[in-house]
Amino acid sequence: MTLRRPPAAPAAALVAAVSVLGLCAVPRAEAAPGALVVRPGESVQAAVDRARPGDVIKILPGTYPGGVSVTKPRLTLIGQGADTVITPGAKGDGNACARAGHGLCVTGTEQSPLDGVHVLSLTVSGFPGNGVDASWTDRLEISDVTAEANGRQGIGVQHSVRSQLRDNHARHNGESGIFLANTADAEGGALNTRRARVSGNDLTGNRIGIVLRRVRNLGVDENHVTANCGGVFVVGDEGVPRAGGLTVSDNLVAANNKYCPPSARLPFIQGAGIVLTGAERTLVVRNRVVDHHGTSPMSGGIVLFRSVVGASNTGNTVRGNTTLGNSPADLADRDQGTGNVFRDNTCRVSEPKGLCEE
Rank of each mutant, 00 (worst) to 15 (best):
E110M: 02
P88L: 09
S121K: 01
V124M: 07
V106M: 08
S112N: 13
R139Q: 11
T123K: 04
T87Q: 13
K91L: 14
A82E: 15
T107H: 08
A96K: 01
T71M: 11
V119T: 12
V70C: 14
G126R: 07
S143N: 14
K91C: 10
I86C: 06
G92I: 04
G92A: 09
S112L: 12
E141A: 04
S112H: 14
A147Y: 05
L120I: 03
G116W: 03
E110L: 09
E110W: 01
T84I: 02
D133I: 01
V145K: 02
D83T: 09
V124P: 06
G79D: 12
E148H: 06
S135W: 04
F127A: 05
D115I: 01
V70F: 07
T76W: 09
T71F: 07
L120S: 00
H102F: 07
G131I: 07
H118V: 12
G108H: 07
L122I: 00
G116H: 10
I78V: 15
D115S: 13
F127C: 07
G131W: 04
N130M: 04
T71R: 13
S143D: 15
V106I: 15
T109Q: 10
W136T: 03
G101F: 08
L120Y: 13
T146Q: 08
K72G: 12
D115P: 02
K91F: 11
E141Y: 06
E110S: 09
T71H: 12
G108W: 04
P88M: 08
A90R: 14
G103K: 00
W136R: 05
T109V: 11
D138G: 02
P88S: 10
G129E: 06
S112C: 07
N130D: 15
P113G: 07
D83V: 03
I142R: 13
K72F: 15
D83N: 11
L104Y: 11
N95A: 12
E148F: 04
S121L: 02
F127Q: 05
G116T: 12
V70A: 14
Q80A: 15
H102P: 00
D83K: 10
S143W: 00
A100Y: 01
F127D: 01
A149S: 13
E110N: 08
G103A: 10
V145W: 08
D138Q: 13
G129K: 02
V106R: 00
L114K: 06
V145T: 04
D144Q: 14
